[in-house]
Design a protein around this nucleic acid. Structure first.
Lengths: 148, 148
DNA sequence: TCATGAAGTGGTAAAATTTCCCAAAAAAGA
DNA sequence: TCTTTTTTGGGAAATTTTACCACTTCATGA
């Protein structure tokens, strides 16, 4: 999934997902919306989310595993079922809106990334990009060494 | 089970469990409420709790196994039967309230996680998240190595 | 024994929010 | 330009939340 788009949250807390991204999500109606790790939100198809959930919470005693618990409480547990209305809009529950700083009328960036859509306020996005652009070189070197 | 919600304990020590989570608990009336590992509480259906109990206390000699005993005494043994009233409210026994720092009028976070609901005071939650968010990268790496 | 009151339990009605849907407006494509 | 698709806004219905009230139980002391 790819593509960067911008849109504003309307007065009712809804965000329009561009048709291209809807299509890439498979025009599926069952979605999951959750917190990411950077004050942004991630939107998955339910199937993809469940795969992630299963990988994090593996086995009946996962709740006692520190690593599982960290990922579960930060990313998996906060997830909410979501779907797009007939006009392709996503309504974002209040807890998630607050986490991502998405008050009504906020401009935000909508990014297609691999198996999910990332939703982030424009201001948080700009700040994040400023930080990440300084790290691109380093990240690229480190990753390519790991893989070769 | 998924979803994050916030609510306050009422003057009588009761906490309203949001309809979405009630539904995910299967609208069952027989529940078990117990201590978790982080000054929070876990709410299970009786069936799921028994499953956990069985996983922790495996075999007739579990009581001699140090690990079983640790988990049993900290998490399984303190469990109390619980049920929700017609308005979906949970009354929390005093011992458990004290463990989790949940006095009346305390704001708390209610999280659906896998097969249970986690109940934690808002202040404890914020502290925990601050800690956990710094550990997400590490946890993700550790888990993905284990699983591959 | 009975009145009193505190603490817990159960319920209701109104207010606020969310969800769902429709239709007009705008944009895009032919 | 005309048709089709997309976007925006708003209204109505349904749900959820809040605030409040009534009742039971239990302990106390007159």
């Amino acid at each position: 999934m790819n593509g960067e788009y911008r849109n504003t949250i309307d007065e009712k807390g809804r965000l329009m997902i561009p048709p291209r991204l809807r299509e890439q999500l498979g025009n599926v109606s069952e979605l999951m919306l959750t917190k990411s790790t950077d004050n942004s939100l991630w939107l998955f198809t339910k199937a993809d989310f469940q795969e992630l959930d299963a990988a994090v919470n593996y086995g009946p005693l996962a709740m006692f595993n520190k690593h599982s618990r960290v990922l579960d409480l930060t990313v998996i547990a906060p997830a909410r079922e979501a779907e797009l209305d007939k006009a392709g809009r996503l309504s974002i529950p209040q807890v998630l809106r607050e986490y991502a700083g998405l008050e009504p009328k906020t401009e935000c960036v909508i990014l297609g990334s691999r198996n999910h859509v990332e939703i982030i306020s424009a201001s948080a996005y700009d700040a994040l990009m400023e930080e990440y652009r300084t790290q691109v070189g380093e990240a690229g070197n480190a990753l390519s060494e790991q893989r070769m």
